[in-house]
Design a protein around this nucleic acid. Structure first.
Length: 275
DNA sequence: CGTGTTGCCTGGGTGC
DNA sequence: TGCACCCAGGCAACAC
C-alpha cells in the first residue's frame, strides 16, 4: 500500500528520469482509470507535453507539465509506477503507458485497478475532493502539535481511524497508522477525546518519526517497485507491529495482537499499548 | 456536519 | 483438483 513515504520515494526516484522529457504517446490499456477529463481528452492533451517538475501532496503524485497542466496519479492499493528504458519488458499489469521521445516509457501498473489518474490545469486541482480537503503533511510547519491535539480532542471515536482520516493529517495509511500508535504506546481503540495532553504530544511526535523513518528507508510496501538503479524500500525490516502478528514485540516480547478496528486489520502490542 | 457502512477491484490463500 | 469464500485497504458514495 503506497503511503506518504512510498509515494515520496517514487517521486524522488522518478524526478530525474522524467523531468524535461516530452510525452510522445499515451496508451490507455484501461481507460476507466482516467477520472478526469474524458479518456480521449486526457490522451489528446497529454500528447506532446513536457514534464517540468514532480510534486506530491499526501499520497497524490503530481506531474507538473507545460501550459500549467498537472497530471495527478493516486496509486491507491496496488498502483506502481515504473520508468522502463526502451526495449525492456513491461509489467504484466500495465494499465497506462506513457512513451517518451526515445521510446523510454513510464508505466502505470495496477493489479487491482483501483488507482486513479486525472489531468487538469493547476488552478482546477480543487476538483479532486481528496486534494481539496487534505489536511497538513507530517514534518511540515503546518502540522503543529497544537493543531493535532486540538483536532483530536474535538473528535469522537477511536484514535486509529482518525489517523487514517486524510483531512486530519495527510499521508498515513494502515501501516504507518499502526506504527505511529505502537511507537506512542497508545491502544488503537482508545477514544481520541480521552487522550491526555501528554499522549497527544507523544503521538504527534510518533507520527512525524515513523513517516521520517519510512522516507529514510525508501518506503515499505511497494515490494515490486524498482527504479532505474534497482533501489527498493527497506522499511519493512524496521516495522514494530505491522505484519508481525504473533511475533514478539521488539520492546517487551509479548506476541503482537491483530484485531479489526473500523474494518481495518490492526496490529498492536497488548502490553505496551494500553487504553 | 460528524460518524459508520458499503462497494470498488483481483490475486492469493484457505477449507472442504 | 476444483470450488466457494474471504482477505488485503484507500477512498468515494451513501445512510443516518
Amino acid at each position: 500500500m503506497p503511503e506518504l513515504p512510498e509515494v515520496e520515494t517514487i517521486r524522488r526516484h522518478l524526478a530525474d528520469k522524467v523531468t524535461e522529457r516530452v510525452i510522445k504517446e499515451v496508451d490507455l490499456l484501461l481507460p476507466r482509470l482516467i477520472k478526469w477529463p474524458s479518456p480521449g481528452e486526457f490522451q489528446a492533451i497529454l500528447t506532446g507535453k513536457r514534464i517540468k517538475k514532480l510534486g506530491r501532496r499526501g499520497k497524490y503524485l503530481l506531474f507538473y507539465l507545460e501550459d500549467d497542466f498537472v497530471l495527478v496519479i493516486h496509486l491507491r492499493m496496488t498502483g506502481r509506477l515504473y520508468f522502463i528504458q526502451a526495449g525492456a519488458e513491461r509489467d504484466k499489469y500495465t494499465r497506462i503507458l506513457f512513451t517518451f521521445d526515445n521510446q523510454d516509457t513510464l508505466q502505470y501498473a495496477d493489479t487491482r485497478t483501483l488507482g486513479t489518474l486525472y489531468l487538469m490545469k493547476e488552478r482546477e486541482l480543487w476538483r479532486i475532493s481528496g486534494l481539496q480537503h487534505m489536511g497538513p503533511e507530517p514534518l511540515t510547519a503546518e502540522f503543529t502539535e497544537a493543531y493535532f491535539s486540538d483536532r483530536l480532542k474535538k473528535r469522537q471515536g477511536k484514535i486509529k481511524p482518525l489517523l487514517l482520516d486524510q483531512t486530519l493529517v495527510s499521508g498515513l495509511g494502515n501501516i504507518y497508522a499502526d506504527e505511529s500508535l505502537a511507537l506512542a504506546g497508545i491502544h488503537p481503540e482508545k477514544s481520541a477525546a480521552q487522550l491526555s495532553e501528554r499522549e497527544c504530544k507523544v503521538l504527534y511526535a510518533a507520527v512525524n518519526q515513523v513517516i521520517a523513518e519510512g522516507i529514510a528507508d525508501g518506503g515499505t510496501s511497494f515490494r515490486d517497485y524498482r527504479d532505474g538503479n534497482g533501489q527498493r524500500g527497506e522499511h519493512q525490516k524496521h516495522l514494530r507491529v505491522y505484519g508481525r502478528h504473533n511475533e514478539p514485540c521488539c520492546v517487551c516480547g509479548t506476541p503482537i495482537s491483530k484485531i479489526v478496528v473500523a474494518g481495518r486489520g490492526t496490529h498492536y502490542c497488548s502490553r505496551c499499548q494500553i487504553k
